[in-house]
Write a protein that binds this DNA or RNA. Structure first.
Lengths: 235, 235
DNA sequence: GAGTGGTCTAGACCACCCC
DNA sequence: GGGTGGTCTAGACCACTCC
């Protein structure tokens, strides 16, 4: 574990458990340097993480303070900063059902999104995720066969993320997301078990490996009444 | 202008204008140090910005590379990282119409969101934003009178952001957003001029001053067919 | 003037990549 | 073994806040 992570984790823990209450001043950099035996820049990097997570505010000349948000919100936002394959909102009780699994040639849109040629075959699969036996999202995914070989039904039913990182020894680096909402269609209403009128949230996600190449392109169609996206903007 | 901003801006410019094409390797830290006469940590901070913006990938032992995305997407994502009052999507042609402007006592929800007492008066106003004469969003905003005194109709018609920062000399620090989608109601359909069936995207936004206090709580109701939210997750 | 965080430097050691 | 970025240090100077 890195030093700045250790410091950030400890400070976060004490904020969340109330040791540093809302609006209270956090220890100054010098004290934290001594307490953890680290340099000032390391302390600053730890604080940068907490600022990014929306937990802390820093003011030159005054000090560092716990932001005025409640505990539930704090947890929600801190968690949203973690990188997760498909969902920020659920941690347990998730089941996956594979609805379709084929290999085909990419459409122009898919070629463009995955940066592949027209004759590069792609996996196409549709998965439905359930939380506590309720359908929450349909995932329509295209993946380059060349970049991610060896996908099987079993992998789709468990974790692609795991397979790519552990078995293929590749590193997933980032995800670009575009979120829109629209009216649901009949297929989506049936699969997600929602009424006409409940919209869907469409999360288009392109995932990148650490070599800069996109490796998957997914349209995540979420049930509008069970989904929220959380985000923090710092100036 | 800060040194790491200068370096980041120059590198970003050369990526966007094609001087460093997609997938090409960027200069190594040492060369950039010499070119700009800055230290290594300053170069790293510049790169951190570009990674955060989704433009660049860095790999220990190999180098820094331009991410494999097209120019339009690159601009979209780079721009999304900028902190803006109400919209990431439009830059010009915006008009504002104030639909309601009152002072009242806060509901429990508003008290909680703004961290104020039941007898602290709040402004409540409704604004509609038009882009090229088309309504795109209705904003329902609550603001603490004590924290942000002197709001007038004229301010609401121009820029609250400007008023708070320039006239009141306060610093807006961050915004916490929760994005959901739902069916539109009759009022929203009329104001946004959308058909029944077109959903709305609800962006709940709490904005914080640099003293850690929330100063405004807004429900932004976007026309679902004209709105997208863009986001990048880095591992 | 004292306290605090923001930026920046020069330099060190290490992990990872490729030859 | 040479090249690259990741982390970390000690120390400097500066900007801002409050007294």
């Amino acid at each position: 574990m890195l030093k700045y992570e250790i410091v950030a984790n400890e400070l976060r823990r004490m904020i969340v458990d109330g040791s540093y209450p809302i609006n209270s001043q956090l220890p100054i950099e010098k004290d934290i340097m001594e307490q953890f035996s680290v340099s000032r820049i390391t302390v600053k990097r730890a604080f940068d993480i907490l600022v990014e997570e929306g937990l802390v505010i820093r003011r030159r000349g005054k000090g560092s303070f716990v932001k005025n948000i409640d505990e539930k919100t704090a947890l929600l936002f801190a968690r949203s900063k973690q990188f997760l394959g498909f969902s920020n909102n659920y941690r347990t009780g998730i089941e996956t059902f594979v609805n379709k699994f084929e290999v085909k040639l990419p459409s122009e849109d898919v070629q463009k999104k995955l940066k592949i040629d027209p004759d590069d075959w792609v996996y196409y699969f549709v998965r439905i995720r359930y939380h506590d036996d309720e359908p929450i999202v349909i995932e329509y995914t295209y993946m380059s066969m060349e970049r991610i070989p060896g996908i099987t039904m079993q992998i789709l039913e468990s974790s692609i993320y795991d397979y790519v990182e552990t078995k293929l020894d590749l590193v997933i680096q980032s995800a670009h997301r575009i979120i829109t909402a629209r009216r649901s269609n009949a297929e989506e209403r049936e699969l997600l078990k929602i009424q006409d009128g409940v919209p869907v949230v469409n999360v288009e996600e392109v995932t990148f490996l650490d070599n800069g190449l996109p490796f998957s392109y997914t349209q995540n169609v979420h049930s509008g009444d069970k989904y929220q996206y959380v985000s923090i903007a710092n100036k």
